[in-house]
Write a protein that binds this DNA or RNA. Structure first.
Lengths: 241, 241
DNA sequence: TAGTGGTCTAGACCACAGC
DNA sequence: CTGTGGTCTAGACCACTAA
């Protein structure tokens, strides 16, 4: 979908990792070695490797080498809607079994909540997904994107391709996020039956508004997380006067 | 402290921003213009600018330009111990008034909790800080670093220089983190008087273990956050078999 | 000492946004 | 069409790590 050399290099490096040619806790080949082996410039390989560092797949030490980010203290995957790398891919490389199940994908009209959020649109695609890590449901997500901006969305299989890869392909990948987090009790909504928690348990609710620019809202997502399965990074929200 | 060209470029660009030569919602000069104006290569300027993007200071749009990351939906600062950029600097650029007050900085010995965490060390520097954003206390932090690794730490003023800049300078900046998050009631600890919350309120407690490598622990921090003031990014922790 | 990743240069071409 | 940022090359030097 993207057609940069460093993306191609990235995929070849991932293949190396997945095919177990690099064993755990072992150094990856050096930038120079990979450049020669895979047929790219050193700078292109560097870009690919550092991109995998951003994705929490690798870790690099100057003067030493590049390593798989493994071990007890390294396991941490961004699970938010603004995660940099396809969650499915990341889980796979980490040795987990990913499983994204689509519960529903359809057009919805005249939903008051949505018209309030998106004053300029009336029709939306609604994508409801169950996300698993090693067969444990950690998240239920309802994503909404305006039909007018993504008329061809029905042609893609979002159990296979990440929603964000699709938005990137349409040059609509959100860069700014407005988030609201709160805890809420498990409701009787049948969706929550997927969570392995009793009705008295608290579930974490996160709302994402994704903007490509400050004035260009392209996505609204409601995510519910099993608070036993996820963790958080602390941030300070503020509103600029 | 760091002496790379792109760091120098970064600081000059920050000066430009702070001196209001770039007004809000206005484009920054192009990479090529900055390169000529500041006397660096375009690639060096690019590195500086993209580094400021990582720090949530700027946002860039291909084919368009580079902008200050402002506006209602853009305000979000990483407040964790693993935040990429000095919190003080970021708050300042965002138009806020930073205020990091040092409550205590001293050597501590034979603390059972610490010897359990750091089996190889017995003496530690303890740094207790109150962190504010626009005069509102959002966090209280107790940081511990082994004396043997940072013997000259007493020579630095951590109200002016970020602890992480210091660790970077010693080539000991943590890259891996082990975090534990929980909510706890406000205790009678006099430190909590700094929070503007009643005794029945819940405070967010986050523990960070910072490693330079999977086997090299260099920092332990206990942070307490006013849950009214901070927000979170969702992640999936996992332990590799 | 040999090898690593990080930085840096001075060019080049490209896709894209705005006018 | 002009200007933007992104990618890419083919070199170079540096500081650091580990043997």
């Amino acid at each position: 979908m993207t057609s940069f050399l460093y993306t191609a290099a990235k995929e070849k490096i991932i293949s190396l990792i997945e095919s177990n040619e690099i064993s755990m806790d072992q150094r990856l080949p050096s930038e120079r070695a990979l450049a020669q082996k895979l047929g790219f410039t050193r700078m292109t390989i560097k870009k690919a490797l550092n991109s995998l560092v951003d994705d929490h797949v690798l870790i690099r030490h100057p003067g030493d080498g590049t390593y798989l980010l493994h071990g007890k203290h390294s396991g941490r995957i961004d699970a938010g809607d603004d995660a940099p790398w396809s969650l499915t891919q990341t889980i796979k490389i980490k040795g987990g079994v990913p499983n994204s199940e689509i519960k529903s994908f359809k057009l919805v009209y005249d939903v008051p909540m949505l018209t309030k959020i998106f004053p300029d649109f009336t029709e939306f695609y609604e994508l409801i997904r169950i996300r698993k890590f090693d067969d444990i449901v950690f998240s239920i997500q309802k994503a909404y994107i305006p039909f007018r901006l993504f008329e061809d969305a029905h042609r893609y299989d979002f159990s296979k391709i990440s929603l964000y890869d699709y938005l990137s392909y349409k040059n609509m990948r959100p860069a700014l996020f407005h988030r609201k987090i709160r805890t809420c009790p498990v409701t009787s909504d049948s969706l929550f039956k997927n969570f392995n928690v009793g009705p008295s348990k608290l579930v974490l609710s996160v709302e994402y508004l994704g903007y490509t620019k400050p004035d260009c809202l392209v996505e609204y997502t409601q995510s519910y997380f099993d608070s036993n399965q996820v963790d958080f990074k602390v941030e300070i929200p503020y509103s600029f006067k």
